[in-house]
Write a protein that binds this DNA or RNA. Structure first.
Length: 471
RNA sequence: GGUCCCAUCGUCUAGCCUGGCCUAGGACGGAGCCCUCUCAAGGCUUAAACACGGGUUCAAAUCCCGUUGGGACCA
């Protein structure tokens, strides 16, 4: 068995979108599982639409989701000679011919055929005329097979039979000397020794056009696999209209690469009832057999849930690391520098059950930086009342009497006071929570005291008492 | 128009190949309850689907044919 070689071949005509990432992902998973090679090829022959910024965006996106490639990126515009050379080979062997039909003529004949109820394909007028390209404005057409069948045994869809009779004599070199999509793809896939061509469903009908070209060129035909499309909530193909479709937009929104990968693979692939997978698990468990044949609707809510699950299972230190740039962007640059990595990881543990994204996590984590607390006015108003100030004072005294912070001891002291005062737990807990975090919602009181440390806990308690007395 | 693909809860899906274990399972989201110092998380319960019609068979979500509906490509 020869080594598996797969590729991802995007056109650089915009950012890297969700659908592209998923196509890349299936290829990458298969390559990693089979110890194969993942090739990145940029299909930039359409120069009017291709941009360097797009190429950068694609590379950036792939890097962010962690889909590393082994070869490339190759650019088709740097391989023009190869396409032309192979086109000439076909011409020499009589498997291609120059066509001098003009665009307007073709259009007219196509319309005529349509009116007569015939198929609008090229009528083969130049097929056996032996034209040359003297004027330099002829297009080169491939002599398509006219009888028999082209059978594609798709990795995902199974056996598909196409009647060669319906195939057109495709242009492989335009009159401007540029190769067409179907031709450059074949030459590249062949020359790069791609063993498995896995791409979107939209290329399924390109396959019977490409297979005869492989054969005419004398190359082995690779295996094909066609992935179902991703649709928006309206069941239309995913596009800009559906909001965030650039993969980098998800980075901005605080999604984890592992969560994106998990969600995107599960959208069209399954392993019984399992929902959450680590990257390594996906590599091990992936198989074409379990890839879905029908299109799937992209569901942001489930993605959010998957992200939350990954925040829970990822190593806290790793989350902390990913969080740092976001904290800096939120204006906490100085504060972040003064804390240790292990404290940051401890902080992540404190809030990771609550944050579904890193962006949410930033807001959860904010109150734990700095000495003083910033009160939410509404929270302070309802919880830090003059009536509670004396009890908070007693609590402060008892805490101060304890030399070092100990979760059990402080909790004991707290509960004892609650009992003595004859109040409910919540009646004291909420004011303390607001004093310590400035908000009414937070992790467990004693857990957050631990992260805050003795000094800051006492400091903020005093601050809270002050605020309560003034109210 | 031609060719091809697809069809299970609102959504992602299991089951389909190798018919019976399916009074169709799981997950997201929804509803309700529990837990609880708040918010989450978690636990439990619940509503919700085999597109339709024919066949084959003792038996069909599962096999076959057709219909309908979606989609892709070609232009």
């Amino acid at each position: 068995m020869s080594q598996v070689r797969v590729r991802f071949a995007p056109s650089p005509t915009g950012f890297l979108h969700i659908g592209g990432v998923r196509t890349a992902l299936f290829n990458w998973l298969f390559a990693r599982q089979q110890n194969g090679v993942f090739v990145l090829r940029i299909e930039d022959t359409d120069q009017s639409r291709s941009t360097d910024e797009s190429i950068q965006a694609i590379l950036e996106g792939l890097k962010w989701v962690g889909l590393d490639w082994d070869e490339g990126p190759f650019r088709q515009t740097e391989r023009m000679d190869l396409y032309r050379g192979h086109a000439m080979q076909l011409l020499e062997r009589g498997q291609a011919y120059w066509c001098v039909c003009k665009a307007e003529e073709l259009e007219a004949r196509r319309k005529e055929a349509e009116v007569k109820g015939l198929s609008p394909k090229y009528d083969g007028r130049c097929r056996d005329r032996g034209h040359t390209n003297q004027a330099g404005d002829a297009a080169l057409r491939f002599k398509a097979l006219q009888e028999g069948e082209t059978v594609v045994d798709d990795l995902i869809k199974g056996k598909i039979v196409f009647d060669n009779n319906g195939q057109d004599d495709l242009i492989i070199l335009r009159s401007n000397g540029y190769p067409t999509y179907n031709f450059s793809v074949v030459v590249d896939d062949a020359l790069m020794n791609i063993t498995h061509v896995v791409r979107g469903d939209d290329h399924l009908t390109n396959t019977p056009r490409q297979v005869p070209i492989f054969q005419a060129l004398g190359f082995p035909v690779p295996q094909f696999g066609h992935l179902p499309m991703i649709l928006g909530a309206d069941k239309a193909r995913l596009s800009k209209r559906h909001g965030a479709t650039s993969i980098m937009a998800y980075k901005e929104m605080g999604y984890l690469p592992d969560a994106m990968v998990n969600y995107l693979v599960r959208l069209g692939w399954s392993h019984r009832d399992q929902e959450i997978f680590t990257r390594q698990e996906l590599i091990e468990k992936f198989s074409w057999k379990n890839v879905q044949t029908s299109a799937a609707v992209f569901n942001p809510e489930k993605l959010l849930w998957v992200n939350a699950e990954h925040i829970k299972i990822s190593p806290p230190a790793q989350i902390a690391q990913a969080l740092v740039p976001l904290l800096e962007a939120a204006g906490l640059t100085d504060e972040v520098q003064t804390v240790s990595a292990s404290w940051l990881a401890q902080l992540v543990v404190l809030v990771k059950e609550r944050a579904k994204t890193l962006v949410e996590m930033v807001s959860w984590v904010r109150p734990y930086f700095g000495q003083a607390v910033t009160f939410d006015d509404e929270a302070a108003k309802t919880c830090l009342t003059p009536a509670i100030a004396p009890i908070l004072g007693k609590l402060l005294t008892r805490f101060e009497a304890l030399p070092a912070f100990s979760k059990q001891q402080w909790e004991e002291a707290f509960k004892q006071l609650v009992e003595e005062e004859g109040v409910k737990m919540g009646q004291l807990a909420q004011p303390v929570r607001v004093a310590l975090t400035g908000r009414t919602a937070s992790p467990g009181l004693f857990d957050l005291m631990e992260v805050l440390g003795r000094d800051r806990t006492l400091f903020r308690l005093r601050q809270g008492i002050e605020r309560a007395s003034q109210a």
